[in-house]
Design a protein around this nucleic acid. Structure first.
Length: 810
RNA sequence: GCCGAGGUGGCGGAAUGGCAGACGCGUCGGUCUCAAAAACCGAUGAGGGCAACCUCGUGCGGGUUCGACUCCCGCUCUCGGCACCA
């Protein structure tokens, strides 16, 4: 049965352009977006679950009268295509990608997911990446793309550099068992740090994002407030070391300084007798991998330089050390060590016998020796004119004093680093830059885009036909940039391209983008909580600043769906536990599969796939089919529960409209399905109780079919046609209007009043809704069981919650 | 270590101060059948009782409240994120 009706309706929807979005519709717009996938050829019901959620919402919003934009596309550049190509001996990454896209597209259509395929974008196609290049030039023009030599993260397996966000615990995000190496290379960066403050502050507006994601982004940006202070170097007139501290109140407690091994002043402050040891230490630190160096488990190491600095607040001479627990990439690459009030400095001081001086006294403390660093707030002591101030006021005063003396200043730092976008790969978007001996770095002019990837699959740096060019400025021989861009650049703006996917003059038409943006609902995996979502927010702000976009935030409401597991592991073809949409549809049809995917558990939670659970949904659909189309086949049963009560049926229908509508809108699909099942059960009870098939019954049938449509679109469309309401000649259920309900009908006229004695349920009685406390009390006291529980005493206190409960306390 | 989410029947889960376990799976019993499957009907948290009913029950220990799965404090376990960021 599903095998017949499902393809039939899928064809009709496409022919009718049901999900084609009109740019000129007078209806309010709704932009429903799912994260575009990497076409890995591994589509499972796990991925499908995500797309079904988006589809349910799109279908609902259409019926509610919105002009819905529900597009789809492919994040099609990237390493797996190259790796697969290599594995399969000479197949081109493009061939592999295109094949996978075709396959995935067929499967998406098969489960009845409707997209506006006219707007499909594919990031590896020249008509898309041309505009990624264009945007690079815009960033370059605005001073947001720059080239710099820097120590970078290098994945030895992928043979490319990685962004900070792609390094997890010192290992490559794609290869959890491969340690990332450090290399010094000239690379392209996007200056995302310029937007750190705005990316942080605007998180507050995103109140419809999961709290978790906002916290993760906040931590990633890592704002801290403090001061930069200059410590003069003893014996080197005019030379000083700048440090950053978040605790200016502890300045008097600094008993030594620490430079990062890569700090430029290390050589200068090192004395002759320490030189050999310092050089050896610095050399060793350089060679260590990130993971060795960042391990907090490891004991801290360091060496004295023999040099001294002057603490500017008290004129004390303190030794300068070099240690790799100080990072050159954060703050100024140098710290003042305050062992009494910093755990790391404390550990280091203990190990090397350096002095510890307490300058913050915790409230009510004696003067006993410190066993650990005290990092909390307190009162300043041993701090000259600042003694007696609390930490917070003290910090402010110290900063004020430093600024007055010109030896320090207030400073805000971020953990966020600039985004390294260069990748040494073939299958990515070319960076449109030319290197000319005379003119240096020259951007390819906008009108000469795109810089096309060569057909031949080999590293761009090994392909002179690609990199040999002429300088766009002077016409001399020049060399093209052979790095490609991180694929996260491609995905940072694809949601804008959907607004005008065929625009041949610009990345997107600002007018259309402003019409559709922001995305009303964005659905995807939580693994993108930082990377993709932070980069897309950054792009949106840059484009706003360039006057191309009105909005400053791309995604209004974000939802992270859970993953589907099987045998305790995330489902995937490579893990061997995947169930493909093909198999699912073959088994019981697309509708049963869709509904089961929604019913299996809360949408945000990971769920365990269970083949037998599908049967319950199939049974439910059979029951609905019978109720709607063959109600006469349901026999009246003696002793049926609800006795064919027409008023009750009407009420249940109204209540179900409310619950299911609310649940769909809040993406609580699992409970929406449960309520639909309840309605079907009620309808069955009604018939079995001898209920008449009058207008009330017809209304129930029509409502059930409509409410079912977003999740089970084929079967409901078929039933709609057979009811004589729609079909190819009369209009589709997909175009019908969403049912409304009358609150008065939904209201329960009679409620079950729970009677408690001392908070324990002693009786339940059916009463009219809206009783006064006196009436309720009288009814409650009429109960034998309540009187028994009260044991003769009079209630001294009565709590009455209208239409719910009355609690008698003796 | 820090931050965040969570712990409810045999299982997936529902209920966010007011009837714990909706809905479904599974199991058991029944109808139909020569039989089985399917379908349909019923039962199904634990303990006690012939029964009406009673007692206990939402990770553990306290607290607030007439009343707590729900709010507060402490602990514990699981999962996710961050982790020498000065």
């Amino acid at each position: 049965m599903p095998q017949e009706i499902e393809p039939k309706w899928q064809k009709i929807w496409v022919d009718r352009g049901v999900m084609d979005a009109s740019d000129k519709s007078p209806k309010p717009k709704y932009y429903d977006l799912v994260m575009y996938p990497y076409p890995s050829g591994d589509l499972t019901v796990g991925h499908a679950r995500n797309y079904v959620m988006g589809d349910v919402l799109a279908r609902l919003k259409r019926m509610q009268g919105y002009e819905v934009l529900h597009p789809f596309g492919w994040d099609a550049f990237g390493l797996p295509a190259e790796n697969a190509a290599m594995k399969r001996g000479g197949i081109h990454p493009k061939t592999w990608t295109v094949e996978n896209i075709a396959k995935a597209k067929r499967e998406l259509k098969m489960i009845g997911i409707l997209y506006d395929w006219d707007r499909e974008v594919t990031s590896c196609m020249p008509d898309y990446y041309r505009w990624t290049e264009w945007l690079f030039l815009l960033f370059y023009e605005r001073g947001l793309a720059y080239r710099a030599m820097s120590p970078v993260n290098w994945c030895p397996v992928d043979k490319t550099v990685l962004a900070n966000e792609q390094v997890i615990n010192g290992r490559c995000w794609r290869h959890p068992d491969v340690e990332v190496e450090k290399r010094d290379l000239e690379q392209w960066f996007f200056k995302i740090t310029d937007y750190a403050e705005r990316l942080l502050n605007d998180l507050e507006q995103l109140d419809k994002w999961p709290h978790k994601v906002r916290v993760m982004q906040t931590n990633w940006i890592g704002r801290s407030e403090g001061a930069e202070v200059d410590f003069p170097v003893a014996g080197h007139e005019g030379e000083s070391i700048r440090i950053y501290t978040t605790r200016p109140d502890t300045l008097f407690g600094s008993t030594f300084m620490v430079l990062a091994p890569e700090h430029p002043l290390v050589e200068k402050v090192t004395t002759a007798e320490h030189r050999a040891r310092v050089r050896e230490y610095v050399e060793r630190a350089r060679k260590e991998t990130e993971i060795e160096r960042l391990s907090t488990e490891r004991e801290k190491t360091g060496v004295a330089t023999g040099g001294f600095a002057i603490n500017p607040v008290n004129g004390e001479k303190i030794p300068i050390w070099v240690a790799d627990y100080v990072l050159v990439t954060y703050g100024t690459g140098a710290i003042m060590a305050v062992p009494a009030h910093d755990e790391r400095d404390f550990e280091f001081a203990k190990r090397y016998g350096l002095p510890v001086r307490e300058v913050i006294a915790p409230a009510g403390s004696g003067g006993e020796e410190l066993r650990d660093a005290y990092i909390g707030p307190g009162v300043m002591v041993n701090s000259g004119q600042f003694d007696g101030l609390d930490s917070k006021t003290g910090s402010d005063r110290v900063i004020g004093w430093l600024e007055e003396k010109g030896i320090g200043k207030r400073s805000v730092k971020y953990r966020l680093r600039d985004w390294l976008i260069s990748r040494q790969r073939y299958w990515g978007c070319p960076i449109p830059i030319v290197y000319c001996e005379l003119d240096g770095i020259v951007p390819v002019p906008y009108d000469r885009l795109p810089v096309l990837l060569p057909e031949e699959y080999k590293p761009l740096a090994d392909n002179p036909d690609f990199w040999r060019t002429r300088c766009p400025r002077c016409g001399r021989d020049a060399r093209r940039e052979t790095d490609t861009m991180d694929t996260f650049v491609d995905s940072s703006w694809y949601f804008l391209r959907y607004a005008s996917p065929h625009d041949e003059n610009e990345p997107f038409d600002p007018e259309l983008a402003n019409h559709w943006m922001a995305v009303d609902q964005y659905t995807g995996g939580v693994e993108h909580a930082i990377l993709h979502l932070l980069y897309s927010r950054f792009f949106t702000k840059v484009l706003h600043d360039a006057g191309l976009l009105d909005v400053q935030e791309p995604f209004m409401r974000l939802f992270n769906q859970g993953m589907v597991k099987r045998f305790g592991q995330v489902m995937s073809k490579s893990a061997g536990n995947g169930v493909s949409p093909d198999e699912l549809v073959d088994k019981q049809g697309a509708d049963a599969g869709r509904i089961y995917e929604m019913f299996i558990g809360p949408p945000e939670e990971d769920v365990e796939w269970n083949d037998s659970g599908l049967n319950g949904v199939v049974k439910f659909l059979h029951r609905v089919w019978r109720l709607v189309l063959q109600p006469e086949s349901i026999e009246v049963t003696a002793g049926a529960r609800d006795g064919g009560d027409a008023v009750l049926l009407r009420r249940r229908v109204a209540q179900t409209i409310k619950k299911v509508t609310d649940d769909y809108e809040d993406l609580r699909f699992n409970t929406a399905v449960a309520y639909l099942m309840e309605l079907a059960n009620t309808m069955q009870d009604y018939l079995q109780g001898g209920g008449v098939r009058d207008e009330g019954w017809d209304a129930a049938v029509h409502t059930l079919v409509k409410l079912l449509n977003p999740i089970g679109p084929h079967i409901s469309e078929e039933m709609w046609e057979r009811l004589g309401e729609g079909g190819p000649d009369r209009g589709l259920l997909a175009d019908a209007t969403w049912p409304e309900f009358d609150a008065a009908v939904a209201a329960e006229p009679e409620v079950t009043l729970v009677v408690q004695v001392s908070g324990k349920v002693r009786d339940r009685m059916a009463v009219a809704a809206g009783l006064s406390e006196e009436q309720a009390l009288a009814i409650a006291m009429a109960s034998d069981r309540v009187r028994a529980a009260l044991n003769g005493s009079k209630p001294s206190k009565v709590i009455y919650v209208r239409d719910k409960l009355i609690n008698l306390v003796p």
